Amino acid sequence: MSQPITALVIMGVAGCGKSSVSEALCQRSGATAIEGDTFHPAANIAKMSAGIPLNDDDRAGWLDSLCDELRRALAAGQRPVLTCSALKRKYRDRLRSATPGLGFVFLQLTPQVAADRVAHRPGHFMPSTLIDSQFATLESPVGEPLTLALDATIHSVDRLAEQAHGWWLEHGLDPSR
Rank of each mutant, 00 (worst) to 15 (best):
L87V: 12
C84I: 01
L150D: 01
D116V: 07
P122F: 00
F39W: 10
V9K: 08
A31C: 14
L63P: 04
T38L: 14
A60M: 08
D93A: 11
T137H: 05
N55G: 14
L8T: 10
S2Y: 01
H171Q: 10
A24Y: 04
G15T: 02
L146C: 07
P122G: 03
L138T: 04
S20H: 11
E162S: 11
K18I: 11
E139R: 09
Q27Y: 02
G17C: 08
T83V: 04
H165K: 00
S20N: 07
R72P: 00
C67S: 14
P127E: 06
D151K: 01
A86G: 09
A136Q: 14
T129H: 03
W168V: 04
M1Q: 11
E35I: 09
M48L: 13
W168S: 07
G12S: 13
P80A: 04
V142K: 11
R59K: 12
A73R: 14
A46D: 13
I5A: 14
G77R: 06
A136N: 13
A73G: 07
A50D: 11
T32G: 00
A76K: 08
R72G: 01
C84W: 03
V81H: 00
R72A: 13
L70Q: 05
V105K: 01
L148V: 10
G143E: 02
F135S: 02
R121G: 10
K88A: 13
I34G: 05
A33V: 02
H120Y: 09
